[in-house]
Amino acid sequence: MSLDKFKAWYQKASFYAEEAYNAPYRSAIARAKREQDDLFMLLIFSEMMGVPNPASYYTLELQPLLMERFHDWHIRMGLEHSPLDNIKCC
């Protein structure tokens, strides 16, 4: 067997193995990750909602980076509209 053929075969086998490993648990893991991310969002935006956060000096600069996720987050938390006065996403 030539090396190229072997490489192609190895890649195919790798793909099937990776899928067999990951496919059954993809959703459980993604959900767990989302839960952690949600907690992180709460820490970042806590000051705005009146929850004092000693680290807010540092988390402030992260806010613009997380703006994209803000809308999905507050919907997931059960709030139809943005809970913040100064940030209106919907």
Partner: peptide, 20 residues
Amino acid sequence: DGVDYVPTNKYILWGHHFTS
């Protein structure tokens, strides 16, 4: 959505269905 709903190759889906 890449989380729960992911179109999957039928052989892989069979393997995962069968082993579960």
